[in-house]
Design a protein around this nucleic acid. Sequence first.
DNA 1: TATACTTCGTGTAGAAATAACAATAACTAC
DNA 2: GTAGTTATTGTTATTTCTACACGAAGTATA
Lengths: 227, 227
Amino acid sequence: MSHTYHYPRPGLTVDVVVFGLDEDDLKLLLVRGGETPQRRWSLPGGFVRIDESLEAAARRELVDETGVSDIFIEQLYTFGRVDRDSRERVVTVSYYGLVNLSEHTVTAAESKDAAWFAIDDMPTLAFDHNEIVEVATARLRGKVRYQPIGFELLPQKFTLTQLQRMYEKILERSLDKRNFRKKALATGLLIELDEVEQDVAHRAARLYRFDERTYRQLAAEGTYFEV
Amino acid sequence: MSHTYHYPRPGLTVDVVVFGLDEDDLKLLLVRGGETPQRRWSLPGGFVRIDESLEAAARRELVDETGVSDIFIEQLYTFGRVDRDSRERVVTVSYYGLVNLSEHTVTAAESKDAAWFAIDDMPTLAFDHNEIVEVATARLRGKVRYQPIGFELLPQKFTLTQLQRMYEKILERSLDKRNFRKKALATGLLIELDEVEQDVAHRAARLYRFDERTYRQLAAEGTYFEV
DNA sequence: TATACTTCGTGTAGAAATAACAATAACTAC
DNA sequence: GTAGTTATTGTTATTTCTACACGAAGTATA
C-alpha cells in the first residue's frame, strides 16, 4: 500500500436501503433532496466524514434525511463503477436496514421529503440506486432463510400469522401454515406470551416475542436457522 | 447526498485476500512492502485511482505486488474504522480471491517479497489485516457450502478425492467418502473424463472437470448447491 | 511372478427432515 | 343464535441424510 499518494481521491459516500413492513407490503424508504440530478428520488445517504466510521456515517445521514434512528443496519456492498455518478468519481458503501413500520413512526419524514414506497412500485432512482436496491433485496431474501433477521421488521409482540406473512412477502411465495408453525417453534427462538392480539373481529391469535438471549447463544455456536 | 463538500476525504484503498490450495494446506498470499509500519507482512493492495473501478484496482495491485493475475476474485467487505491505519484515515474495500497453486505458479512472487503462508500459521499482519483475513475465511467457509466456488482452488482436471480434501480443508472437518461422492455427482456439475491421474504409486483415480455451462444455467434459475 | 501395499470405487438400511393435506375451535358481528 | 372469520392442531408418504466396510485395481519390490 503506497502511502505517498498525490493523485485525486475518489469521493466516499454511504447509502442506506431501509426496508419496512406493514400489513400490506414490503416498503422502502426514499428521499428527494434538492441535490440529485433531475430531482429524482434516491436512497438516503451522503459523504463520509474524516472522523466517523462508515456505519456511523450511514446512521447520521439516515437520521438527518429521514428522521429514522436506532434501527438494525448491516453493510451490504460497495459500489465503485467509475461513472456511477456523472458529476464526479464517487464510491459508495451501501447498508441495508430493517424497521417495523407500526412501531417506528417516521414522523419527520413527510416534512423532509422522505417517503415509503412499495417495493414493487418504485420510481426510477438517481445514480445506480435501483441497482443497489436490487442487491439489497437479493441479500435480504438470501439472508432471511438462515438468519433470523426478519424479526426486525415485526413489532416486539407478534402473531405466528404475522411472522408467516413476513416470510411470504420477503420470499415471494406462500408457505404451508402448519409446517411453518412447526418449524418456527422448533427453532426455539420464539417465546410464547400470555397475551393475544387486541381489537380483531374474529378469534384473537396468541402473541409471541423473539428470544434474543437464546439467539445469541445459538449464534455463538454457529448454528443455522432455516424457515 | 450533499455535493458541495469541502471537508478532507478519507483515503480509499483495496486489499485482496488470496487463498491457494496445495496438497498440504490452504494458504494465503502475503506481501512485505517497505511501506507498512514495522515492515510487517500485509495483504496485497493499495490506493484506488480516480479512473478505475474497485475490482480493477484490486487486480492491478495484485499483479503489481505479487505477479498473480487472472484469478477469481469477489468483493468481501469494506473496513472503515477511523483508526485502522494510524497514519491517516483510510477506508479499504477488501476482496477475496481463489487460485490453484499447482497450475498458477507465482513466478514473480519471491523476487517481489510475496509469499504463501499456511492459513493456520500466519504472522501478525499490518493494520487490521488479520481481521480482514478472518472475515474472508468465514466467508469462504460459508459460501463454499452453497456455491461451487471451490473449483477455483483445484486444477482443471481433478479427482473426487482431491475435491473432497478441498472441502475438508476449508470446512475443517472430515467428510464421509461415499456420501460425499454421491452428493458431488448428484449436483450434475461434474463431467467424468476418459482419463485417470498419472504417476501415482497405486490405482489411479478417475479425473473429472467442473461443468461451467450447466452451472451457469442452474445459477440463473437460482438453484442452490450443497456439499 | 508372487506378495505386500496403497488408494479407488461402490450399496444399504435406519433415522431424520420435509411436504402435502383439512377439520374443529374460538371469537366477533349482526 | 347464526353467519363469518381466523386460530390451532396431527398424520402419513416421500425425500434426504447418516453411518458404515470390503473387494478391485494398480504399483513397488523381494
